[in-house]
Design a binder for these strands. Structure first.
Lengths: 156, 156
DNA sequence: GCCGCGCTACTCGGATAAGCCATGTCCGAGTTGAGTTGG
DNA sequence: CCAACTCAACTCGGACATGGCTTATCCGAGTAGCGCGGC
């Protein structure tokens, strides 16, 4: 199991944008240079965040990205599932129905026990991420990082 | 993020073996036929379970796999990390140190906030899986599945 | 009848090829701002 | 001096190559049971 590194990029970018919610949009070039990331590939993930309604994009000069909602209403889970997708990492293949002595479909209305255990773990994971907002992350940042982010959101 | 389907296979096989902890070993062929899985590929995952000390393998005729510990002492997390590896799905690339205004390394002793949030979620996930033993899964199985498993562990 | 030996068949284990998704990149469409020119 | 037009540069957005990991497979090493032959 491996998480796309775009998740890290997206979280850092969203937190950075949260430093200045009502300010001017920040271009993807600025964001990429801020973390020394490949600009065009970062753009791919930013697009995903726009599609999910986390970010809002503006075209043209002085354009860029800004938060679509107040940072208090954006959870880490929102960012993660925007980039990584909301599908469960565990997909039950219903192997209980296959092979020797397979269980007939009419007895498989309820999800299999193994699947339930995995689903519970996934939900615990989601709940943990849902309980943290971007605003909270912003407030937990050390002073130096915060100053750096503010500097990045400043135009020029 | 996608979880290897070997996890599902491994869990089902371990639960099946838990139906008869002190019985004769079950060969990988029997296990594969039981769920209609590719035998040699299933073997790869079973090997991983042996390496992690979850299963115990026996060679020769009448050989096969059996649990290395009582099912009460095997958690879903043990099985999962044996197959999937125990590495965290989120690997912090320390991008805060890179790019314009990168934070110097001496100020990065503590893990970055984003990384901490992800680590907490991962720990919640692990805790959920650690709280479920194979014995508990076995007891939650419907009657028909349980009978099917017992039949599979019976020699012949 | 009993013991020892060899064989066979079955088991696991590691090394070896394809397929798919994450990664990385490029170019095109759209939009806004500034500069210029005419009134 | 003001307004409208043109241009140009900058932005995002979607379509196109590449690499690594999951998937899938094969063959070899080892072992235990079974049959056979000798005593």
């Amino acid at each position: 199991m491996k998480l796309s590194q775009g998740v890290e990029w997206g979280l850092h970018c969203v937190v950075l944008l949260a430093q200045d919610p009502d300010g001017a949009p920040v271009s993807r070039r600025t964001l990429a240079q801020q973390f020394a990331l490949p600009e065009t590939y970062l753009a791919k993930h930013l697009q995903a965040l726009v599609r999910s309604g986390v970010l809002q994009a503006t075209s043209g000069p002085k354009g860029g990205f800004r938060l679509a909602r107040p940072p208090e209403e954006i959870t880490a889970l929102d960012v993660l599932e925007a980039i990584e997708g909301s599908a469960s990492p565990f997909v039950c293949q219903e192997i209980r129905q296959r092979g020797t002595g397979g269980v007939p479909p009419e007895e498989c209305r309820l999800p299999c026990t193994v699947s339930s255990v995995m689903a519970a773990a996934h939900e615990a994971w989601r709940a943990s991420l849902r309980g943290v907002t971007v605003a909270e992350i912003r407030e937990r940042l050390p002073k130096n990082v915060r100053e750096r982010d503010v500097r990045a959101t400043a135009p020029g």
